[in-house]
């Protein structure tokens, strides 16, 4: 960076447009919302910024606190499943033959090429009770099992009862995992890719099996990558509103749905602003926790994410 400072013209030419963009379209709007969160509604569109904390007080009412806690739990579960599923996937891609790797990675990022709304709608087609792909698959298995038990003269299993999974918290969770899984796989992959395979060979050489090596060597050394994957999954998961909206039931709404409602149907921008900022503070805490967990002192041998 030293050399950049010596040519301030280049520095300005490159730095000014993005800075102006961020200032104009990110910092100023977010500042306005922050100011609104200390305001009061005085008309349909008019807001008086009075410096009141009433909006924050209201955010801590039991009904909103419950939704906040539920949002944290849902985001946490999503993250957990994404890491549990994403780690083996990233590990397999890392050790796949070199000519397969680009294609496997392409498969991971392929969902990004489709609009999120359409992908979420597609999940409805998968999960719905009548003619959903999940239930059709389950029915086929059920029928096959029924035929087998019939073959052995056992009692029939009875008619197939479709699983009413759509419009429930479970459906929301499935939808969120589906959407955020690539976010978990990519940082895990980039960490595992740079892992010195000598560590794995040394572990095998010392007599450990593959499972032992995976849990004693690979997982700890991938720590910073796991932390990145957790953050990068957890933060957007905490703010997801499309999945609860489309896949959830009436009681499946999360904090982002409440915020959306304040800005749109309820037209209560001060309260929406306060909720938004509370959500953002939680995100800050998560990022700080990551920085703390991956601080580069004692773990120099493990890889940055």
């Amino acid at each position: 960076m030293e050399s950049w400072r010596r040519s301030p013209k280049t520095f300005l030419a490159l730095g000014l447009p993005p800075t102006a963009w961020l200032l104009l379209f990110f910092l100023i709007p977010i500042g306005i919302v922050w100011a609104f969160s200390f305001g009061e509604k005085v008309g349909i569109v008019d807001i008086d910024i009075t410096g009141t904390f009433a909006n924050y007080d209201r955010a801590f009412e039991a009904v909103y606190l419950q939704i906040m806690v539920k949002s944290l739990i849902m985001a946490g579960l999503t993250t957990l499943v994404c890491i549990a599923v994403g780690f083996p996937v990233a590990f397999l891609i890392t050790f796949a033959p070199a000519r397969w790797k680009p294609w496997l990675l392409l498969l991971i990022i392929l969902p990004f090429w489709t609009n999120l709304l359409i992908r979420t709608y597609a999940m409805i087609a998968v999960l719905r009770t009548n003619n959903g792909f999940l239930n059709m698959g389950l029915e086929a298995i059920w029928d096959a099992a029924d035929a087998v038990t019939g073959l052995f003269g056992l009692a029939a299993l009875g008619a197939f009862q479709p699983w009413d999974i759509l419009y429930s918290d479970a459906a929301v969770l499935i939808g969120m995992v589906y959407v955020f899984l690539p976010f978990a796989v990519l940082p895990l992959y980039s960490t595992l890719e740079r892992l010195d395979t000598n560590f794995l060979e040394a572990s095998l050489d010392l007599g450990a099996g593959h499972l032992k090596t995976f849990f004693s060597i690979v997982v700890p050394l991938a720590g910073p990558g796991i932390a990145s994957a957790v953050i990068i999954t957890f933060i957007p998961a905490l703010g997801s509103f499309l999945q609860p909206d489309l896949l959830g039931g009436t009681d499946s709404q999360l904090i982002a749905n409440v915020i959306e409602r304040q800005f749109l149907s309820a037209n209560d921008w001060p309260f929406g602003g306060a909720l938004s900022f509370l959500l953002m503070y939680i995100t800050f805490i998560a990022i700080a926790a990551r920085a703390f967990l991956t601080r580069p002192n004692e773990r120099r041998g493990s890889l940055p994410a």
Binding site: D196, A202, L206, L221
Partner: peptide, 20 residues
């Protein structure tokens, strides 16, 4: 025979001492 079942041990060029 897989490496973890051989009565042989190795010192790697990079040492591969587990950093954690």
């Amino acid at each position: 025979t897989p490496p973890n079942q051989r009565p042989i041990n190795m010192v790697f060029q990079s040492y591969a001492v587990f950093p954690h």
